[in-house]
Design a protein around this nucleic acid. Structure first.
Lengths: 224, 224
DNA sequence: CAGGGATATGACCTTTGAGTAAGTTACCTC
DNA sequence: GAGGTAACTTACTCAAAGGTCATATCCCTG
């Protein structure tokens, strides 16, 4: 009588796993690994905590499964776009377009990929390394093409621009998440306009000197 | 005899506060609010945990003080640059230059500003709102000038580009943190080249159609 | 229809880290 | 030099969340 609701409900393991995984993706992607609680995910999935542990072993194991699902979905989409023959900025826009469309039904997958609160060791770190490599490779390739186009062959420049590009993608997706109702098509068009705006803004060939005299950062009030 | 090392060491409160604050800024900025432990910060500062609580009240209070210090330092620098008369891309580069120089001695201050694991309510949230407003205002202003320069007057475009710009700043600083030995001056020059590269890459006036047929995201393996 | 295995749970154990109580030492003032 | 106050510590409490245990129900097979 103490374990009142115990006993099987006849749902096969594969179904439950999917059910748990869906809830986990949303919670981990929305709140991040650290703030998410296994009990909360179990509640969202409509089952109890021990079942999660029985099927996924640990919080880390559950996150790993969620991460793998999300990362695979997104990496596959990016590779699909990369296989096309567009180059430079156009390739970048196609990638964004593909991501917007892939993320539309489950936008939180994106956050899963770059969760700073996820454990940085063990299997999770290994999986992240695999997918980061896979995605960074694509970005490096695209940026490399662009740099070749304009005659800049400094490898550190390419590395930095890759970082900027990936971060810009992140920012655009985040902005999109914050503006519900904007369709993927509208977002892609917006990105197109933004690129044109940046390209169009004139820039002096030589940068005027700056940063000579420097104040010491003022000793601001320490307390609130 | 039980409290062997107790008793004052004659260090005045203001000195200790500064000492604790320095350690806190580095730890919070490096590991983030959630992963940081008060005991760890106390150890780094060379004192014991209760003294931290006596002077700062709570972990949140300590973070708030750290945040205010870092945010004030950086906001002041950005406002200083904004007061100059450069516009568009040039203004952006000057802002980056100022940030690189300000962050050189204490790079972790940057991470403090955008810590996703920081509490999102209470005084910390209020302080973040204040500084986010202050900094975003500058970015919006700069982006607005640029958009006017190129004739794009869609306010949502400006909003999105602001997000991209702030994220690009973040990416460049992060990249810089990952490449020790690169001087602020070298970084500013690199940013200059990157802008030129992006501007220089040709772009078709009309975007080729993309995103028609869509595969369903494949049902990838659920487990690791 | 006996029993083994898969599905399921309430109650528990354990660890971690925020926060506190209470005592100790030094200095400063009268 | 008595006593008040500021500086400082050890040793604790407590809550939250990860993880486990013992048990309950169902279904399938011989």
């Amino acid at each position: 009588m103490s374990r009142a609701n115990a006993g099987t409900k006849g749902v096969p393991r594969a179904d439950r796993e999917l059910q748990i995984l869906r809830a986990a993706c949303e919670v981990f992607g929305t709140m991040g690994f650290a703030k998410a609680s296994v009990a909360g995910i179990a509640a969202d999935a409509g089952i109890s905590k021990p079942l999660v542990y029985q099927y996924f072993g640990s919080k880390e194991g559950l996150f790993l499964a969620s991460f793998n699902y999300g990362a695979e979905t997104l990496a596959a989409e990016m590779e699909r776009v990369a296989a096309d023959d567009s180059v430079g900025v156009e390739r970048g826009l196609h990638t964004l377009d593909g991501l917007f469309r892939t993320l539309e039904p489950q936008p939180w997958l994106w956050r899963l990929l770059f969760d700073p609160s996820a454990p940085d060791d063990g299997e999770v770190a290994a999986a992240r390394a695999v997918y980061t490599d896979r995605i960074t490779r694509l970005a490096v390739e695209g940026v490399g093409e662009l740099m070749r186009l304009v005659g800049d062959d400094d490898p550190l420049d390419a590395s930095a621009l890759t970082a900027v590009w990936m971060s810009a993608v992140d920012a655009l997706i985040t902005w999109w998440l914050d503006h519900p109702g904007v369709t993927p098509t509208q977002m892609t068009e917006r990105c197109h306009r933004l690129i044109i705006a940046i390209s169009g803004a004139a820039l002096p060939a030589e940068l005027p000197a700056e940063g000579g005299v420097r104040r010491q950062a003022e000793r601001s009030s320490l307390r609130a």
